[in-house]
Amino acid sequence: MRPATTLLPVGPTALLAEVADAGQALSLALFARAAAVPAVEVVPAATTVLFDGLAGPEDVAAVHRLVALWTPGAPVADGDLVELPTTYDGADLDDVAERWGTDRDGVVARHAGTTFVSAFCGFAPGFAYLDGLAADLAVPRLDTPRTRVPAGSVGLAGAWCGVYPTGSPGGWRLLGRTDAVLWDPARSGGRGDRGPALLAPGTRVRFVPA
C-alpha cells in the first residue's frame, strides 16, 4: 500500500510530513500527539505537519513508524466547541457581501451558520486558522494591509477565518469583532483550563451574532 504521506528531513532532528490539506494535517497531528510521538513540537499547518526536536535516529525512526500507522481521511470533529459572541460591524462587511453576491445579513447567516475547526495556529500566539468555509466563498487578502487591527477582530483571508488575538497589522477582510480573550499566557492549560490559546488546533468554533 502506498504510504499516505511523505516525510522530508529538516536537518537531523526534525521531519516534515506532507499531506493533502489542513484537515488531514490536523488529523495526523492529533493522532501523533495521542500516540505520544517523541517530538518536542508537533506543528500542523496548511498541508504539512512538522515533527521537531527529535533526539536522535531512534526518534526519527519512531516518527516514520507512527506516521505509517496513520489512516488519512478520518475527519476531526470531536474537539471542544467554543462559541464566540460576535458583533458583525466589520469594515469589510459590505465588500465581502458583494463578493458573495448577498447582503450583510446574508454574510452573517453564512458565517454564523458555519461550524469551523481550528486547523493550526500561526502568525501570532493564539492566532488560529479556522477551516470550514466553502472554497467558493474564498476572498483575497487586502492589497494593502491595515497598520493596526484591534484584538478580537474577526476576518477572512482565502477560505480561512481568523480572530486577531492581539492588536497587530493585518490584511484579513474584517467581518466583525468579539470580546472573547483569544490569548492569555496566564491560562495554564491544566485540568478544566483551556490553556493560553482559546482556539488551539482541533477546537470547534461557532460565531454567535451578539
Binding site: A29, E41, P44, G53, P125, G126, F127, P196, A200, P201
Partner: peptide, 9 residues
C-alpha cells in the same frame, strides 16, 4: 519555551 509552536509561540 519549546513545545508551544503549535499555538504560534
Amino acid at each position: 519555551r519549546p513545545g508551544l509552536a503549535h499555538l504560534g509561540v
